[in-house]
Computed example of a mutant assay.
Amino acid sequence: MFKLMKHIKEKYGNPPVIITENGMDDANRPFSKLESVLQNDKRIQYHNAYMTNLLDAIRKEGCNVHGYFVWSLLDNWEWNSGYTVQFGLYYIDYNNNLTRIPKASVEWFSKVLGQKAAVM
């Protein structure tokens, strides 16, 4: 991500950039315990790496990054995979009135965004 932002800056004159729908899928594990599904460390590591690179591109290279949006807020039906993968920060319990349950990544994002907002 750092190299890509630097490339965009150099090739296109540092236009405003907004990263949209960035995320990763995780296998839906319907027979796993809920606690295990909610502890989505892989997603936290993924977003941490991307956001660290973006922050470095902004601070070290002056890249004009204006936003970063996660794909996706909720687990949902994916065109190519149906319900076999999860993308969301919130788990959707399809067997319990579509209850939305925050995953560990929600708490992580809350802390990160709170820290960043205080710095800016």
Rank of each mutant, 00 (worst) to 15 (best):
V37C: 07
I92D: 03
W79L: 10
S81V: 07
V37R: 14
L74I: 11
H7V: 11
W108S: 00
C63Y: 01
D93V: 06
D41I: 00
K3L: 11
D26Y: 06
M1C: 10
G114R: 10
N40L: 08
T84G: 02
M24C: 15
Q39S: 13
N76K: 01
Y50G: 00
E21K: 08
L54C: 15
N22S: 10
Y12I: 04
V17G: 09
R29C: 10
S32Q: 08
I19S: 06
N76C: 13
E107D: 14
I44S: 01
H66C: 11
L54R: 01
L74K: 05
F109G: 08
V17W: 07
L4E: 13
C63R: 01
L113A: 05
M1D: 12
M1G: 12
F69R: 02
V119F: 01
W71C: 03
N14M: 08
I44W: 04
E107L: 09
N28R: 09
D93I: 01
N64K: 01
A49L: 11
T84V: 05
L54N: 02
S110Q: 15
I8D: 10
M51G: 00
A117R: 14
D75R: 05
G114V: 03
N76S: 10
I58T: 00
Y91D: 03
E10C: 09
D56G: 06
E107I: 08
C63H: 07
L89Y: 03
L74T: 06
I8R: 02
E21H: 01
T84E: 14
E61F: 05
N48T: 07
F87D: 00
Y83F: 15
N64V: 01
G82E: 03
K3R: 12
N22P: 05
F69Q: 02
V119P: 09
S105H: 02
Y46R: 10
N22Q: 01
D41V: 08
R100E: 10
N76M: 09
Q45C: 08
A27C: 07
M24L: 14
E107Y: 11
T20D: 09
P102D: 10
